[in-house]
Design a binder for these strands. Sequence first.
DNA 1: AGCCTATGCAGCC
DNA 2: TGGCTGCCCTAGGC
Length: 538
Amino acid sequence: MRRRSLFPQVVIDRDTESEESSSDDEEEEGEANVVLPEEETIEESKNKGKTSITITLKKVCKVCKKTGHEAGFRGATYIDCPMKPCFLCKMPGHTTVTCPHRVATEYGVPHKNTTNPLEFVFQRQLHPRVSPIKPAYVIPDQVHCAVIRYHSRRVTCLEFHPTNNNILLSGDKKGQLGIWDFGKVHEKTVYGNIHNCILNNIKFNPTNDGSIYAASSDGTISCTDLETGISFSLMNLNPNGWEGPSSWRMLYGLDVNSDRNVVLVADNFGYLYMADIRSNNIMNKPTLIHKKGTKVVGLNCNSLQPDLLLSCGNDHFARIWDMRRLEAGSSLYNLEHKRVVSSAYFSPLSGSKILTTSLDNRIRVWDSIFGNLDYPSREIVHSHDFNRYLTAFRAEWDAKDSSESLVVIGRYISENYDGAALHPIDFINISTGQLVAEVMDPNITTISPVNKLHPREDILASGSSRSLFIWRPKKLDIAHPRQEKRMVLCGEVSKTHSKQHGDKSDDDSENDIFRSKDNGLKQKKLASKSSSYSSRGS
DNA sequence: AGCCTATGCAGCC
DNA sequence: TGGCTGCCCTAGGC
């Protein structure tokens, strides 16, 4: 606070008499550690034996510490540091504002409301002569209901119930499991005693849709009965407890192979583990499937060819395996990426395509039929690289799309939407590279890295910070006009186990519910035009 | 209100 | 390899 208020003028009292300095002086010296570029003015005067120095600081770019420019928000538009490579495509020579991969927004193309799918095209097709075809995708573009601050930490994963269309499961950084019946908006449960740190992935038991498996950074796989919340550990990789970070195992990737009745998980040291669903026994020895010592963040079984397994991780590879011959180094293909691969999924219907998300800000499609797996058949530049404090973004297929071309992923960088800096959720046609729709709500000012499309209905579930949102197509919502009752505000959830039915806070108005500490801060950062906010989406 | 800082992060030097 | 640093991040605490 003090530094901000003094900026750009700092007055330093320096003790010239002795080497020893009082605690006050030390504090002031701390202030003087601010970078002092060329143009500071120093003025000294004797005052009670101390030398007083007045320094005028020239503003410095917070990114490169150089003068002459400043990175940061101008209103709701972020201006990059020109000394760095493009924040979006990572190439030198330009910034995000002039990046050819950026969706044109405030620079010419008018923004309409989100009623119709927006028509902005990423200029990034590998085959630019192929004219983009816009299928009649149905985009869930309007918030239908939400649970605000449902989780006590950020949401890490989402999973729809395989048979009950209204049930959404969610996991968070603290290890808690949420069960939300968004059909009866107020029916929500949180189990807090299953895991004690990050719940990385959830999968339903294929033989019993009343129970789920979850992989956690506490090193266990849990099997939980959804009705009772009673769970047992299928696997515990840290039976001796904490013995330091070099030995603590965390489980990330998780999938279930229903043909083989196997649960597969992978850890932060590159190993794959398997457990038999029927006997609950751990099978075989762990197999090194990625570079030793690196995190395996994703596992995915091919739904059509049960012998195929896909993995991805921090060694910058996605790898394809034959389940019949699983041993270190025996992968069928190694899909190379420039940075960490946060997700890799087989296409849901044919299983012949692979969709990967890498921290190099590219979504890649690998086609085993119309291409080879040596190179991706398409690379789409998209902003999803992040720094910290966020769940990793994962591009996911729309299982309802028979053409296997529609994909959803949250966007990291914000866009200036009528003066508000919002982070949309993008729908991308991966066969053309076209941005089919960018979905946002002016009340959601935080990033939405976790997104899941409903396997059977035109519904999108998104997790943003601690909150969950259900999106439906606007035209369908006419039959179900948005009501205040659809928004549920959750306070803190108890640490152990809490069931919440029909909270009293439900009667809050919509605006009150959305208004949070975080929201207030963010809006202040926005441009003054926030009054046009409320006109959007109405 | 404004800081600070956590960061079972990742990257880089 | 280890230690430092970090561009649009978040929540919580002082």
